[in-house]
Design a protein around this nucleic acid. Structure first.
Lengths: 143, 143
DNA sequence: TTGACATCGTTGCGCCAGCAACGATACGGT
DNA sequence: ACCGTATCGTTGCTGGCGCAACGATGTCAA
């Protein structure tokens, strides 16, 4: 019996993830020309307050180097402030600037309405999708 | 109200997709050192029979160039046969070789048991996840 | 038939993710 | 205090994706 790719979960996940990210990117491209890593760093800082590169690396599942470069670009753009931690001088404390907070305030509205849009498209399957994705995502055994 | 990244669907999708692909890759890495595009091309050829680069590009959501290069690598590995279409000499007909079919026979068993494993982890949410992913994937409005 | 336009596969190029190596700093045992 | 080890952030490098351009072939209308 041949194998059907279009019922295979890793494939479906990959396609759905790409397409959904692309849809969302198109939305916030109007507000700001952010890459996905940059968006994640901003979003994380927005709800966690100050955080080190390593914190973000662990919690947002981005490689250290990706976080580092995203943070540098965001600093250049004036959205993020980088300063050394006085207690541990290896650490870099990242924090949103005033501009960064203002941007995230607008973007979180965009994100919220996008999320609502997606959920309305999914109907009753929405909650199950979220549960399943959290189950498949890291933080689970072997991570 | 700050924004919570860990309930945001594009983020959850991306993380779940990466992790699930990585888990599956680790499984078939033992059988064959395939990249994800190579795996998709093989899988599609296995259940569609002969197909052109363009067919795969459309149906498997890989860029033309990615399909082209994957096919070249697979031809070098002796898993796929490339020949010109006699009716339309622009087209390249891709087909599994004997070795390719044999490999896919083994890999489809691996894939099947992996799928079963995932579904058992998801429990009752499995079917809803599949439905939701198909809904979010392309082939929907605006694609 | 000819010529304008469309389609197919390949190739070149820019870009970013992922990995490893590095310098700098912190920690722990002796 | 000192030395070996661990951790943090940055940077160089390789490889692959995505886009655009190209040559080759096909199609259709005049």
């Amino acid at each position: 019996m041949p194998f059907h790719l279009d019922t295979f979960l890793p494939y479906l996940l990959s396609v759905a993830a790409h397409r959904t990210s692309a849809r969302f990117s198109a939305l916030y491209a109007a507000e700001a020309g952010l890459t996905i890593p940059e968006w994640r760093v901003l979003a994380h800082l927005d709800h966690s307050g100050a955080a080190s590169v390593r914190d973000i690396h662990n919690l947002v599942h981005l490689d250290k180097s990706v976080v580092s470069r995203a943070a540098s670009r965001l600093e250049l753009a004036g959205l993020v402030q980088k300063e050394g931690d006085p207690h541990d001088r290896r650490l870099i404390v990242l924090q949103l600037t005033e501009d960064g907070r203002a941007l995230m305030q607008r973007l979180s509205r965009v994100a919220g309405s996008f999320q609502a849009q997606i959920l309305s498209e999914l109907g009753a399957d929405g909650p199950a999708l979220a549960r399943a994705l959290r189950q498949l995502g890291p933080g689970q055994p072997g991570d």
